[in-house]
């Protein structure tokens, strides 16, 4: 019979300093089982550090994080609690995929048969006896996924799993993550790509500069960030502007005859226009894309901003 699958990650005021630099700053969040939780933030915002703190690879400077109610290291069967794919490669380049998996499996008495099953599942059958150092980035990610699944864990921590995968591989990962969540597992997956999260995640934890920015469902995240402006095109734009302007209403205009109105719904604007006989050519509520919502919310939280730094090479890694 199947083992229990109840997992939960709980962080309380989690903080990590590296010398002067604060990588993670007072993070508190809970990752629930049964859904895919996206962990989103610009590069360098502290996602990988948080993952390492959860696994106990790094010790927090303050605060605490538990997995299924205990510190990760205190579980008697760690690989059965958490399976992890860390962003940086975590494989000895001189060892074959098979022996890499076998050595990790043996720490928990996991059989050779399961090692081969997982190699087949991730599609590494033909290269399993080759040295992992010769693997492409995509093959390395597949090996990482197999490693994470070894102990049939109730919680999965995956740091940027789609990096380096081809479209087919990305599609496969999405389906895998959804399947794992559907089985009741806790799936915590980080990315700096909002669009990827939009397709995979149900819930989002967004951080910037190590701080929590949002902990919300994907739909709510977009709704909040779009700010509810309405685009209005009218030959009588200036009359309309005078009519709607009020205490909580903002109006901006980028070209004659075009208004972007904030603080009113499309219905309210349409009714006002009708009452005063104003002709409208366009009346469209603006829904920010997930990407825009993300940019909007993390603005100011990106570590280096492209415009502000003299050295383009520093900005490059972050602008992506």
């Amino acid at each position: 019979m199947a083992a229990r699958l109840v997992g939960m990650i709980e962080a309380q005021g989690l903080t990590k300093d590296y010398g002067e630099k604060r990588a993670v700053d007072g993070l508190s969040f809970t990752v629930q089982p049964g859904v895919v939780t996206g962990f989103l933030g610009p590069n360098g915002s502290g996602k990988s550090t948080t993952m390492r703190l959860i696994l106990g690879l790094d010790a927090p400077s303050a605060g605490d994080v538990t997995v299924n109610g205990k510190h990760y290291r205190d579980h008697p069967t760690p690989l059965h609690e958490v399976g992890a794919l860390l962003e940086a490669r975590s494989v000895h380049t001189g060892r074959s995929a098979y022996y890499h998996l076998l050595a990790l499996a043996q720490t928990h008495g996991i059989s050779k048969r399961r090692v081969t099953e997982l190699i087949d599942l991730v599609g590494l059958h033909e290269v399993a006896r080759k040295r992992a150092g010769k693997f492409s980035l995509g093959m390395g990610q597949r090996l990482g996924i197999a490693t994470a699944l070894l102990g049939d864990p109730s919680t999965l921590l995956l740091d940027e799993p789609v990096n380096g995968l081809d479209p087919e591989g990305i599609h496969w990962i999405r389906n895998l993550l959804k399947s794992l969540a559907a089985e009741g597992r806790t799936v915590f997956v980080s990315s700096h790509l909002m669009t990827e999260m939009a397709l995979t995640a149900d819930h989002l934890i967004v951080i910037g500069r190590g701080k929590l920015i949002a902990d919300t469902s994907v739909e709510e995240f977009v709704r909040r960030a779009s700010g509810g402006t309405v685009l209005v095109r009218s030959p009588q734009a200036s009359s309309l502007r005078d009519l709607v302007l009020g205490e909580h209403v903002s109006v901006t205009s980028t070209e004659p005859g075009l208004l972007e109105i904030g603080g009113l719904t499309a219905e309210q604007i349409g009714e006002t226009a009708a009452t005063h006989g104003i002709v409208l050519h366009e009346l469209s509520p603006q829904q920010a894309s997930l990407e825009e919502a993300f940019m909007e919310l993390t603005r100011g939280d990106v570590e280096f901003k492209a415009g502000e730094t003299a050295s383009p090479s520093v900005a490059d890694g972050v602008a992506a």
């Binding site: 069967t77 690989l79 059965h80 720490t107 008495g109 996991i110 599942l121 102990g151 496969w172 399947s179």
Partner: peptide, 28 residues
């Protein structure tokens, strides 16, 4: 690509023991 990917379940997850870690280190 199948929509649902079934990961084979592990019947009996074993505990982490010093002896098992030694076996693992021998493999390494």
């Amino acid at each position: 690509i199948p929509t649902v990917i079934a990961v084979p379940r592990l019947e009996q997850p074993g505990r982490l023991t010093q002896a098992r870690v030694a076996v693992s280190e021998w493999t390494k």
